[in-house]
Amino acid sequence: MIDIEKLSFSYDDEETHEKKFVIKELDLYIDKGSFVAVLGHNGSGKSTLAKHLNGILLPSGGKVYIAGMDTADEKNTFSIRSTAGMVFQNPDNQIVAAVVEDEVAFAPENLGVPPEEIRRRVDECLEIVNMSEFAKSSPSRLSGGQKQRVAIAGVLAMEPECIILDEPTAMLDPKGRREVMRTIKSLNKSRGMTVVLITHYMDEAAMADRIVVMEKGSVIIDDVPKKVFSEVEKIKEIGLDVPQVTELLFRLRSMGIDMPEDIISVEECEKVILDRLKGLKND
């Protein structure tokens, strides 16, 4: 689905006139239907990477292919953007229209889709993100989580194969975050949509099938969540978090208690500790 070969992105520093690399020779392949989280702190290059995935930015070196199309080829621009749709961080700054359903219609209108077909897509996409009852509302009356779901519907209306979300929950409250994450998860699980989620929240990344950790423009870890979070020290070192239960077991290990490395949820941790206590008593 997404094929990135030796991608570099650099700019010339105004003062020193040196080349500064935001992304350096990055290789990444993302399968169709997968859910990949790209994790990294601000300035790690993760948002710059996201902007390469639908041709908002073009590589200074290397190639990015979306469904086989080269993003650097201008005649592909619209096909790429409608194949890999993008949702941004600030819900207020990406909504164009003053009515929810017109907002969702915006992209298909740009693509010249016939009116009846737009209507059908708008209704369907609002249904998918569970916002049908707000079709006639003004976006300014919605909560952050609702606005972000409208933005997702606005992208889905292009019928993309892949959706890229650039820190979609960074400005939301916990309730809004849950709503948006539930929507993203169901897009992937029940609709087979390829999802690339850029985030710095560990609990969100844990929902993905695969986590790509970025630091200084390169991929430093690329694995399934359980394996990624087992590298507690490495992750903490680059200024990111691990789930509290993972850290708890890490600390217990360093105190000489044998504990598994790949626990990321409260339920799993509860079970591990209970089993250990019972096991010890039964011995």
């Binding site: 902007k51 639908n54 908002i56 619209f78 953007r81 409608s82 749709g85 993008m86 941004f88 700054n93 990406q94 164009v96 359903e101 017109d102 219609a105 915006f106 992209a107 298909p108 209108e109 740009n110 693509l111 010249g112 889709v113 016939p114 009116p115 737009i118 209507r119 708008v122 606005g154 992208v155 292009m158």
Partner: peptide, 18 residues
């Protein structure tokens, strides 16, 4: 940027839902 990424390119060949 958000408009660009949803394929906005002015009024040419644009359709309307309503």
């Amino acid at each position: 940027v958000a408009m660009d990424s949803r394929c906005y390119h002015g009024g040419k060949n644009r359709t309307r839902m309503k």
